[in-house]
Design a protein around this nucleic acid. Sequence first.
RNA 1: GGGUCAGUAGCUCAGUUGGUUAGAGCACCGCCUUGAUAAGGCGGGGGUCACAGGUUCAAGUCCUGUCUGACCCA
Length: 1034
Amino acid sequence: MTDRRYPPVESQPSFPAIETEILERWKNDDTFAASLEKRPAGSGEPDEYVFYDGPPFANGLPHYGHLLTGFVKDAIPRYRTMKGQRVDRRFGWDCHGLPAEVEAEKQLGISGHPEVAAFGIEKFNEYCRTSVLRYTNEWERYVTRQARWVDFENDYKTLDLPYMESVMWAFKTLHNKGLIYEGYRVLAYCWRCETPLSNTETRMDDVYRDRQDPALTVKFALDSGEKILAWTTTPWTLPANLALAVHPDVVYAVIEIDGEQLILAEARLDSYEREFGEAQRVGTLLGSDLVGRTYQPLFDYFSDTESAFRILGADFVTTQDGTGVVHLAPGFGEEDQNVCLEAGIATVCPMDSHGCYTSEVTPWAGQHVFEANPAVIKHLKQVGVVVRHDSYDHSYPHCWRCAEPLVYRAISSWFVEVTAVKQRMLELNQQITWVPEHLKEGSFGKWLANARDWSISRNRFWGSPIPVWKSDDPEYPRLDVYGSLAELERDFGVVVTDLHRPAVDDLIRPNPDDPTGRSMMRRVPEVLDCWFESGSMPFAQVHYPFENTEWFEQHYPGDFIVEYIGQTRGWFYTLHVLATALFDRPAFSTCVSHGIVLGDDGQKMSKSLRNYPDPMVVFDTYGADAMRWYLLSSAILRGSDFSVTESGIRETVRQVLLPLWNSWYFLSLYANAEGTSGTWRTDSSNVLDRYILAKTAQMVERATKDLDAYDLFAACSGIREFLDVLTNWYIRRSRDRFWEGDKDAIDTLHTVLDVLCRVSAPLLPLLSETVYTGLTGNQSVHLADWPSASELVSDPELVLVMDRVREVCSVALSIRKAHARRVRLPLSELTVSHSDAQQLSGFIDIIADEVNVKRVSLSHETSAAASAVLQVNPGALGPRLGGRTQDVIKSVKSGDWRQEGDQIFAGDIELFEGEYSLKMAVTPGAASAALGDGLGMVTLNIEVTPELAAEGTSRDLIRLVQQARREAGLEVSDRITLTLGVSDALRNLMQPFLEELSSETLATSLRWADGEANTNLDGEAIFIGVERASISPR
RNA sequence: GGGUCAGUAGCUCAGUUGGUUAGAGCACCGCCUUGAUAAGGCGGGGGUCACAGGUUCAAGUCCUGUCUGACCCA
């Protein structure tokens, strides 16, 4: 067993090469599957941990945002697995939705509803299907390369028939609960493409362009006698006017001209100078005074509309332009519609899908609304209500496909009545843990509180169908909602194998309520918002409730989801809506929400700006673990945005990966030189060993706490700090012991690295795997158990004392620096003066060695080089003294304090135990420095005797020889013959140190000879010759 | 216009229930070290904690307002 050797470890590793090797091994051994099998599913909590994969939309390659989310989606499940829980991870694909259609249209060179219909819905959808799956292989390649373990074979797709059936079930269940209704929703609409546009589409670049429109100011006759002026840039909407809006707080002027009293915002009077320059001001009103007044409609097409033709109050009214009075046509404006709905005014929309007036607007029926503008204006002028007609330049949205100006139009839509469950959603939100925490009551909570009904239908082709069939004859109305394939089969008599259009549209049957047998039941044409589908993921991925009902009950809500912060309005929200409405439960118990990944210039990542390193290049240059650590240790996991820079990734390699690797290299080097390897042991009595084991235990505790809190940022910091202690203290101070093959040291470092690898496994899965498997010979670190601090050493006192030792050394080195005494130059004595100095007694060898002094003295006396300084403790002082606290602090700072026996006075005020401490300050110029707690100090004897100087020179010489060995390319254990060419004086000076020189440099012989000087010692040019000795005893 | 978050060193960010002299990494400068060495250590400069008020014995921290930025909503 003990003759086991570590595998050879490269001193200068290629991390990408190591990573691909591990990935290959995982693939061959199917380590992921093994890690699942090792944790058999039990009865749900607590031996299972439920992770929901938020489906990406894969119509492009993954970018940093996806990779970051993927790293978190991997790290947390790996951690939970090591903690003993089973974590199934199914990959999910979001397949439906507008991006797929847009991509298909682009590739097919067609655009808009009429063209798609002409092309054929079946062919079009078939194209969408292949298009969305085109990138799946690439995605798998990236995800695998980033070392994310996820089940691709058992993935779920929103286009799968079982998935779609579950979505259908959800729709019907909501309908049965009375939470689905059909209504109107105003959307941006392209009359040429005959399609509504989504928010995303109206926010694309180049959508807003300057355009000149007619601007019309018209008079509405109030029933109270005055006329109120409204302004519009869409005169064609005036026939559909149903109300006017004023701002309740705006001041409106009443003016009189030509016997008419006119009302408009006071702030707008100036801009109507031309028309009303002669008018008399006869009154002033607040908007709130006007609210509720009624007026005569301009047209009589909708004159019997209930509650219409009134003045309403609305906050969005401004006095930036127009008259401060807004004409409302609820069918043609979203705000118009909202205000009107609140006032109980129905939505009318006398425009057909081609943008032409319907027959309701009799004179211009069939005419395109834009073309009808002049006719409408002409008519209004004829009836004498036009006050002004001019033109207006403004930025106006255009269709991004066909560049025609858009209109806003009320579209028939299906809604989920979110407002009915809003209260419950807020309550259930209380059960969710949010990271960062402020999201709960912040963005998410506020968003819930203002939730409006959710429009879930889309006038599109590629998606889950709205499962509603309607009678095509209003004489015999009937509406059927379907919730399963079986129901469809029952009514339509065919086996349904595809729920996509057009197959699903072909399901037609006679209306059972129509005795004439003429009317037919036809599906409504819309498809579902794809967010409805992704929100259905927890149950739809397992085909609930048609299958897996028991499984679902045990795995809902999920334990953990993570996505970027924007999903508070997206996936997080739709999950929560459906969970509340369907199951009266939250969908997830913890949600991590990270920020946005930016380019190296702080701007959004942009291919054209080339402001970020290509992920695959980073994988090939630095490796996936470097990228993972870099992202996971950044503030992005605390919700803020974060710039990815190549230098940052390089820095990660230097600060994290290399130290870990170097520690492993170091251990393997010396253990293998000794012909041995380490074993798990925590019982070394060496203080350094005990210290690092205790530090390791603390590191484990902290990492566990941080990972339990999903604080990957903090977990990374803790490990990094530990790496510093490990490499810059433990290993550096223990070099000699390793050189001597000390088994305690080898076993201890072996044990520490074992634990470190396991703690790092979620955060550096590839590197920790290489080290761990090399170290232990075990199959995988990811099959290991998460370490527990109790496996190690608990010795908080030792940790405290050793940390004090490190501080003493650090202070001593700074004194050397201040007095220009290089470390190779031995000094005679270091004195630590501290009331607790004796606790360092077991460590004086370590200190002496580290700071290169002959002797370390411990003293509890205050050194002459220091003077006492009083420090107050305001925390204790404040409660007793109140307002006088500051006086005391001021006195003490100005030196106005004194000690009388046991009593301490600051000014006139006596201070008591606990309210102050007496500390030491160092006299300037002395070779001493205070310790951090101010209760002690370190003094260095900086006198350099000739003996010490000579010894220092000998150390310089040893170092030069070592350098020469290295330059000669010798192995660490090679013996050498050494040739020195120095002056006689120097040779005499070195005489006492020659034995040490030989043993330190493994010189089997030392020859004095001349030679051309090739280096320099203490200002003297000397020659050093190094040759490999022929016999190597090892 | 409203909301959320943020504003701390040249850059990226920590800063725990208010408490003495506000920290880290990077970058810069200087020094040192080297049998882990194309690595590492020590030290230095660099801060009106965005601004203005307020609460308090005491504010980077709590409150109010303003400004700036990001995101969301309108």
